[in-house]
Structures are given as structure tokens and as C-alpha cells.
């Protein structure tokens, strides 16, 4: 397994929400990638945007500004 580090995860209600996040982050060169939602956050399936915790304020601003379908933000060692 790869070495774990603290990550910031954004979860979504829909796949479309996750895809819109990925697209906006790529456009704005915000680092990160989509990963399967870790089961310690929710037993549900789906995708999460995974980035570094330092991006929290940027992510929150992006979600608010773009009206993204984000469910929650989590910090997690993965």
C-alpha cells in the first residue's frame, strides 16, 4: 500500500457533481483527483475529490461560487 497522508476529501450527491468539480479544478489548476469514497466516510458508493488539506478554503470558495453539488468536506489519513 502507498504511504498514507492527511487528505481533504469532497463528497457529492451525484456523479455529475463529482465531474463538475473535477472539471473546474483542472481548469483552475487545483491539484487533486477523483477517488472512490473511502468507507470510513460513508458506506455508500460514489466518488470523492481528493486534494491536500491546504486547499480547504479554495475548495469551499469554489463550491459556494459555482453552486456545486457537494455533500461534505472531510479530512482523513489515506
Amino acid at each position: 500500500m502507498r504511504e498514507k497522508s492527511l487528505k481533504l476529501l469532497v463528497t457529492f450527491h451525484t456523479t455529475a457533481g463529482a465531474m463538475s468539480m473535477e472539471k473546474l479544478c483542472k481548469r483552475q489548476e487545483i491539484p487533486g483527483r477523483l477517488i472512490p469514497v473511502p468507507r470510513s466516510i460513508t458506506a455508500d458508493c460514489g466518488m470523492a475529490w481528493c486534494t491536500v488539506p491546504e486547499q480547504r478554503s479554495i475548495m469551499e470558495a469554489l463550491i459556494a461560487r459555482e453552486g456545486l453539488d457537494a455533500e461534505n468536506l472531510h479530512e482523513l489519513m489515506i
Binding site: T14, T15, A43, D44, G46
Partner: peptide, 8 residues
């Protein structure tokens, strides 16, 4: 099936 919110 939707790929999200499995336990709903």
C-alpha cells in the same frame, strides 16, 4: 442503481 447513495 445509481453509483451513489447505495444504502438509501
Amino acid at each position: 442503481g445509481t453509483g451513489v447513495q447505495t444504502y438509501l
